[in-house]
């Protein structure tokens, strides 16, 4: 179980990016008010500060999520911590 967890956690971290990108499409299709819809509206109305904000938020959360993934390796498999 623990050994199988490492690749899964890696994929989960990388999938987060797909999730955000997917939310842009899904929120448009189903007219949900979310961050994806906000980004699209801002882009279409050339509202650059909002676009910058959305990108900064998603990109930094992506980086932090992958940092957490890297840290979690140490908890899943203590051998990684020493190397």
């Amino acid at each position: 179980m623990r050994n199988a967890l490492i690749p899964i956690v890696t994929i989960v971290g990388l999938q987060l990016g797909q999730l955000v990108a997917g939310s842009v499409i899904v929120e448009t299709v189903f007219a949900r008010q979310g961050i994806g819809q906000l980004a699209i509206d801002a882009i279409l109305s050339k509202d650059y500060p909002v676009v910058q904000g959305v990108i900064l938020l998603t990109a930094s959360s992506y980086v932090v999520a992958n940092l957490l993934v890297d840290i979690s390796y140490g908890f899943i498999n203590p051998r990684i911590r020493t190397s």
Binding site: V20, A21, V51
Partner: peptide, 14 residues
């Protein structure tokens, strides 16, 4: 790489 795929394309299109 820090920017997720489609989001980066969105920024460039902007």
């Amino acid at each position: 790489l820090a920017f997720p795929g489609i989001l980066l394309a969105l920024v460039i299109v902007t």
